[in-house]
């Protein structure tokens, strides 16, 4: 474990907590894409299939449980909670996630480190996570109103992956033959997709104006 990875995991945890706080305290999910939240629940399910078979460390297992529990809780809140679901903007959140899942599944079947079920699912989860934010970014472009909590949630979600890239550089430099092209390429694409959001988020922070994404 290195400081980059620990900070990354904590940033990721913070993003989920910010979102859960928003939904749980003000009972609203305005501006949040259910599609992205469902994709994240699928990402964690496919990535943590080894939760019962491969014990890495208590930290690793506890964090996997937290990410699985929180991602499914958010989907449950947005779908079934009688108050929260009213603020879900289903007419605007129309990104069809099958368009993201199928190519990622095909790619995972073609490009993976080992052709086993668990490994293909693990690989699929990295490709899918790279693009899972797209429905959310599309929704932001459409609704244009980004409240602070949503903006912070997306910022933290993007920052965690950028920190993982620092972790991967650090491990590549310090650990002999540590090479994992699949997470590296996926993580790079994921971080780049946040690029323009980071740019506008930084501008809104610098000019102290409300965050607005161009149409």
């Amino acid at each position: 474990m290195n400081i980059f990875r620990l900070t990354a995991d904590m940033t990721h945890l913070m993003s989920v907590i910010v979102l859960l706080l928003k939904i749980h305290t003000i009972k609203s999910c305005a501006g949040i894409s259910l599609k992205t939240q469902e994709l994240y629940a699928i990402v964690f399910t496919c990535r943590y299939l080894d939760i019962f078979t491969d014990f890495i460390s208590f930290y690793n297992t506890i964090m996997k449980v937290i990410f699985l529990w929180t991602s499914f809780s958010i989907v449950w809140y947005m779908r079934y909670h009688k108050i929260v679901r009213r603020s879900y903007d289903k007419d605007q959140d129309t990104f069809r996630h099958v368009f993201l899942m199928l190519p990622c599944l095909v790619l995972a079947l073609l490009i993976n480190e080992r052709f086993t079920f668990k490994e293909v699912m693990w690989t699929f989860s990295f490709y899918l996570e790279a693009v899972a934010i797209l429905p959310q970014l599309v929704l932001l472009q459409r609704t244009r109103n980004i409240d602070n909590l949503t903006g912070q949630y997306i910022f933290l979600l993007g920052a965690y992956r950028a920190l993982y890239i620092l972790n991967w550089i650090y491990r590549y430099v310090t650990e002999p033959n540590y090479v994992h092209w699949i997470p590296w390429m996926s993580g790079l694409v994921q971080t780049l997709l946040y690029g323009d959001f980071f740019y506008y988020y930084f501008l809104s922070w610098k000019n102290n104006v409300k965050l607005q994404l161009p149409a």
């Binding site: 474990m1 995991d9 890495i56 690793n60 996997k64 990410f67 080992r114 972790n167 997470p183």
Partner: peptide, 10 residues
């Protein structure tokens, strides 16, 4: 940390 075939990152 990384045994063969195990993924030690979240």
């Amino acid at each position: 940390e990384e045994d063969e075939g195990k993924h030690d990152e979240l």
